[in-house]
Structures are given as structure tokens and as C-alpha cells.
Design a protein around this nucleic acid. Structure first.
Lengths: 387, 387
DNA sequence: GTAAGTTCGTTCACTGTGTCAAGTAAATGA
DNA sequence: TCATTTACTTGACACAGTGAACGAACTTAC
């Protein structure tokens, strides 16, 4: 009992892939799994047995499915409650955390304001958060931490974090020592991409790109069923893509830079400045652009059209270069999409290479705890794939 | 004898990976291969034996290497002459072909002008070319065909070829029937990328991008040791990347388009038009820009600076998005690099995301038969990996 | 209501790939 | 000379996954 995922017992390739297949592609009969993974039926009996004995897999009550010929199948389902993960997203001044089960469903969440950026204090706050989220009788399987920057699970060191003021900090190891649970560190956008890959819109696609809009613009990619991790963790750096050379300017002094057009602070600033109304919020701007009575306020309308155009060009550029099956649009500010959909689609079509059809785009609503959930999924993936 | 690569005997994973390791990473001792592939030493004795017996691997005379402690190693080398491949590159009016050995060394080459685009005639010319290149006593192992477009080895159909006027043509199957040798079809840029991956600058890198300049601008990518094949074969479409919105125009009506700045016909046209000298060739333009006596002809100088700037921006964009370890610059017109290196490097640095360092760039001189060689390597890779 | 057909899942003997442990080979260095 | 180091080989063995035969549980045809 309980020895299947213990560190002593090593999973075979077949066991791992069968379990992941069932976790990601929902309840499925042994026969179905065997077909999808090109395994023999007998292998499935053998491989699933220990999982069922230890409770990680359960045989579903035979569903009242559409009756077919032959013996009805016996769907297998992962018991998501058998494991818990904590995911933590670090920002400059906050710490967002969630506890999820094996299916990445959020069970509990917290938030904490960082006292300061002193490492020991942050470690203390992380340890406290993990302790608070851990249930009495159910030990954590792994902890995931995500932040902006170039960390990767294989090089779990914060090399330089401008906003936290750290450099060369082996954060994963320090947290692991503090909480005594295996800990994985990864870039925040890549963590979000992992969520989409296993539990979101990316399921069933061997390649897709995730574009996030919010305080900045991010991009994560899955190519050939694998999450892309570039040279020293640097991938998807679309935030400063040159849209034109006359537009608004970003903090780095780039004229017509993507984030100067399409990030939520830039949008807010453009409208507020043009109207000399510094109190306007981002959502105010969206409301003004949406305003039906006069076809939208002209300033907000223009700014959002330009934002949509920039986003469309970003998506087209990423799609032209990497050729994903799908692009997922998400992030704290995705709800701006409905206000600039026309401009977006026009720009997407315009910048898509003429020999291709525009890539399918899915808009994925964003909840504020998705970042932390991403960290949890990173931990989960790491545990299931690399242990 | 000779049964190792016969279609009846299937290679095990270990055999395949050992053979490819030795082919790609040069002569190596068994012990070294074992370490690199995480296999046991005994596995290497066992796996190597049939290859040596059949002559695909040879034990090298113990090299006079720097003497070390312990028993000297016995380097193993692939006998490249044991297999032959024919690679064919199709363009609108020519057919370029080479025969290579297992190490992708060109043994013989031909060129043929296409009579017309009638499929039977083209098939006839291909069959004749293959027959001409085949040696009496050494049968071909595979034939590779490459052309511009969206074909891939897994979907070996020419869906639409604007310049050849074909659509939905199962070219690989037809050629295979005509020449009675396994045939692989792939996109031309991806084929070139395959050459770099196994026999060029990409060796030893798990990710890199290849940017080609010539009649157009192409881009092939290896990510996580795998050649990227996008949605229906469409990847690396950087030719129409928007550089600015005021520059020269391409055939698709894009202002400031990458190929309107940096393709060799566009460069030639810009200089020729500005000077009203239609007879100027591309190489004339390079010579004028290089002209030491007056720091280069001002028109040619300016056009090439702008071309270099565009190229730098393309490379930076690709690198920002996919994060390759290396970028290889090649194509029929790469020799223009030396004339615009400064502008290129400036633009590369300028457009590289500020959190990264510019990606290392290698310039790879190009011979006209590299395209056909690429086709041969595609066939070779397919034979070794997917059989 | 029975038989035939179909698909799902299990059992058990077996194949075959790669490992482990032990031993041999060939050099250096003291 | 002998210890030490590294390379390679050999043969017994472990064990993951397969194949074939079989039992289970349903639908459909007559």
C-alpha cells in the first residue's frame, strides 16, 4: 500500500505513461489506453494493478454510456485526492499560494504580503504558507514556485531577479530544506503553459503557444509535446517585439514596442494621459472603449484598437515562426480581448504568412490564482515525469 | 552479413542510438558512447558486435592520442561508404541532385533543366537522375526530395506548389514507385537544417535556428534535439516579418517586409532602381557596397546596411521567441554578411530582449549543392531514425 | 431464448534487451 | 616488478512487455 509513488519503487516507462495518459485524458478504459500508447492489452492489466491496489486509480461504475457491441469497457480514473501540491507565485510584494490535488483542482488558497525581500524572511513566509496549506493527515507530494525570470526546473536558481533584488540564489534548494518537501522552481509563464498542456485548452495538441497579457506580455510554448525551455530559460520574450517605430515608448526606450501598446498599464497610461485623467483604471478604459452610446470613447477606442492590432501581430509572428496548432490567449488582462477582437483578428490575418491560414485562437478567462496553480502543476509534472 | 539494416531485422533503440551517436559525434570509444547514452559497458559490446561483423562500424587503429592512464580506448568509426543516398532539390525550372555517403559527403552531383512541369515528365527526369547517380555494385539506401512548400516526411504530399503548379500530389509515393527505393519528401529549409543538426554547426547543440538568405528568407529550427515541424509543415515563415511600415514593398504588398529588405533579388533591385542601372547583378551590388576607396558606394552601402539591419532583427526575433543556443546564418546569399556585419550586429543587439545576451551567430558559407545535400540527409535521418 | 458475434480484460509462458558481477586486457607510474 | 587505472568481454540473470489462449459481458440475428 502506498508504495507505487514512493521514492524507493521506481516507475517503469509504461506505468508512468499510462498514469499520465489517464490523468490528462480523463477516464478511459484499459483497451483505449493500450491503443493510444501502442501497448498490448496484457500490459495494461499488469501496469494498472498496482495503481488500483494502492488507490491511485479507481475502476469507475460502468457508465450508462451509449450501448455498443461487445463487453462494456471498464473506465479507469485517477483518484485526484491521493496527492496534494502547493504552488506559490512570487511577485515583488506579494506571495500567492494554492493547494491543489492531482487533477490541479484548487483546494485552498492564500495570499501574503511580503515583509521585505530579505531571503530569510521570504523563506520564512514561504514555509509558513506551506504549513498553513498542508492538511494534517495528507502530506504534500511536492511544492512548486514560480516567478518572472529565467529559472527552470533543471537550473533551479534565481540568477537575477530585478524586482526581488536577488542574484544567484538557489531558491528551490533553500525552500526544499525549509519545508522538507521536494520543491521545483520555474518561470511563471512556463508554469501557466504547463497548466494548459495537461489540464486546459492545450490537451490533445502536440504543439501550442500561450500568450499572456497583463502587466507585461508573455509567451510559453509546447512543441512536439514538450514544454520549450530555451537557452538559459529564455523563451517567449515577445514583450518588446517591435510593432512599429513611431508608436508609444516602453521603459526600455523602444518606440512602438509591444508592451507599450498592449500591456494593461500601458493601455491605462495612454488613455489617462491623453485625457489628463490620472485616476482612470484599466477597467475604466475598457468600459470607455466599449461604451455603446457613442460607439466607444474615441481615445479609449483608438488605444484599444492599437492594442488589439499589436496583439494580433504578436500572435501572428509567434505562429509564423513556430507553427503551433493553437494559440491560447490568457493573462490578467485577457478580458480586454472582447473590446479589441476586431482589430486583433484583422492584424492576425494581415501578418499571417500568406501561404498559411491564421492559427486558431482560443481566449481563456483568467483568475488571479492561476499563477499559483501553474506553480503547482509544474511541481506535479516534475514529480510524475522526472522521478 | 548485411542483415543489420535489412528491413527484416529491426534495430533496437540502443543499437539505433549508438549508431547515430557514432555517426554524428565522430569516432569514439565504446566506453565514451556508454557514458553519453547512459548505457552499461556490456551493452556496448553486445550492440556493437553485429555492426562490426557487417562492416558498418570499424575499429580504428589505436590513435596516437595523448597517453592516459589505463588501457587505451579503441575508437569506433562508422564506415560511411557502406550506404549511399541520393538527394534532389526541385525548383521551378531546375533539378539539382547529389549522391552522398553515410556521412553526408557528396560523391557525385548533377543538374538537369526541367522540360516542363508535367508530372510524368518530372518523374521521368527524377528516375533518370537517380539511375545516373547510382553505382553499379552499390544499391541506394534511400532517396530524398526537397522543395519549397509545406511537405513533411510524415505527410509526403505536395499540397500546393505555386511555382510547380501541382496540388495534392503524393510525390514521395510516386517517386518511390518509379525508382524502387524508399523515398522521403521534405521542405527544403528543414532539409538544410537537418544537415546542420547532424553534420554541421548544430552538432552538440540541443537547440538552434538556421536562417537562410537567398531568393527568399527561410528559417529552420531544432528544439530539444528535434527538428521542428509545425502545423501542416508551416514553420519558420520569417520571410514576411514586418520590419517597419515605411520601407520597400514585397510582391505581397507588404511595406517594410523582411524579404523586401534582405533577399538577394530585393537588394539587387533596390540598387539597380535607385541608380537606373538594370544590368547590375547582386554581386555587383556587394562589390559596390564594399568598395574601399570611397567607403562604399552610398546607394549600395545604404541598401546593404538596411538589409543587415533587417536580418539582425529577424534573428533577434526568432531568438527572443524560441531561445536557441545558436543561430546559423546560411543560404545562397550569405556572403553578403561580411558587407553588412556591423548593421547586423547592431540590430541584433538592439532587438535582443534586454534580459538576455545576444544569441551566438555563426556564418556558414553556402555551396549551390547544399540544397540537394539537405535532401539526402533528410533521407538518411529518416532511414536511421524511423525504420 | 439460444447461438453467434464482438469487444474487454486476465492469465501465463516466453522473448529479448539490457544490467550486474566477475574477469581479462593493456596501458601508466612507482 | 607490481599496484593502479581504464577499457572491454563474458555469461548468468532480471524483468518489462508480448502473444496466445481463455473467460467475461454485452449486442444482434434468427
Amino acid at each position: 500500500m502506498g508504495r507505487v509513488f514512493s521514492q524507493s519503487e521506481r516507475l517503469t516507462d509504461a506505468m508512468r505513461s499510462v498514469f499520465v495518459e489517464l490523468l490528462v485524458h480523463g477516464p478511459m478504459s484499459r483497451a483505449e489506453v493500450a491503443r493510444r500508447l501502442a501497448l498490448s492489452p496484457s500490459a495494461l492489466t499488469k501496469v494498472t494493478k498496482p495503481f488500483i491496489e494502492t488507490g491511485y486509480l479507481r475502476e469507475q461504475l460502468t457508465g450508462e454510456g451509449p450501448s455498443t457491441v461487445g463487453r462494456p469497457s471498464q473506465p479507469l480514473q485517477v483518484d485526484a485526492s491521493r496527492m496534494s501540491f502547493v504552488g506559490i507565485k512570487l511577485t515583488a510584494d506579494e506571495l500567492y499560494a494554492v493547494r491543489t490535488d492531482l487533477a490541479a483542482t484548487i483546494q485552498e488558497e492564500t495570499q501574503r504580503t511580503l515583509i521585505d525581500h530579505d531571503i530569510d524572511n521570504v523563506l520564512g513566509q514561504i514555509a509558513q504558507t506551506v504549513a498553513d496549506l498542508t492538511e494534517e493527515d495528507r502530506p504534500l507530494s511536492a511544492v512548486g514556485i514560480s516567478l518572472a525570470g529565467t529559472a527552470t526546473p533543471s537550473d533551479p536558481v534565481v540568477h537575477t531577479s530585478p524586482f526581488l533584488g536577488w542574484s544567484q540564489l538557489p531558491l528551490a534548494r533553500l525552500v526544499e530544506e525549509a519545508v522538507a518537501v521536494p520543491t521545483v522552481l520555474d518561470n511563471d509563464v512556463r508554469a501557466l503553459t504547463a497548466v494548459q498542456q495537461w489540464f486546459g485548452e492545450g490537451v490533445g495538441h502536440s504543439s501550442f503557444a500561450l500568450i499572456t497579457v497583463g502587466a507585461g506580455i508573455g509567451c510559453g510554448m509546447v512543441i512536439g509535446d514538450r514544454l520549450v525551455t530555451g537557452r538559459s530559460g529564455a523563451t517567449g520574450l515577445v514583450g518588446h517585439l517591435a510593432i512599429d517605430d513611431r508608436g508609444p515608448m516602453c521603459e526600455q526606450g523602444h518606440r512602438g514596442c509591444a508592451r507599450a501598446y498592449a500591456s494593461s498599464p500601458a493601455i491605462r497610461r495612454s488613455v489617462a494621459t491623453a485625457l489628463d485623467r490620472p485616476e482612470l483604471t484599466f477597467d475604466d478604459c475598457l468600459a470607455m472603449a466599449r461604451d455603446e452610446t457613442r460607439d466607444g470613447h474615441p481615445v479609449a477606442r483608438r488605444v484599444l484598437d492599437e492594442a488589439g492590432t499589436a496583439l494580433g501581430q504578436i500572435v501572428a509572428t509567434v505562429a509564423n515562426i513556430t507553427g503551433p496548432e493553437l494559440v491560447i490567449l490568457s493573462g490578467e488582462a485577457v478580458h480586454m480581448y472582447e473590446v479589441c477582437a476586431d482589430a486583433f483578428q484583422t492584424a492576425l490575418a494581415r501578418h499571417t504568412h500568406w501561404t498559411s491560414t491564421p492559427v486558431p485562437v482560443v481566449v481563456k478567462p483568467f483568475a488571479f490564482n492561476e499563477w499559483a496553480r501553474g506553480a503547482a502543476v509544474t511541481a506535479l509534472q516534475h514529480l510524475l515525469l522526472h522521478r
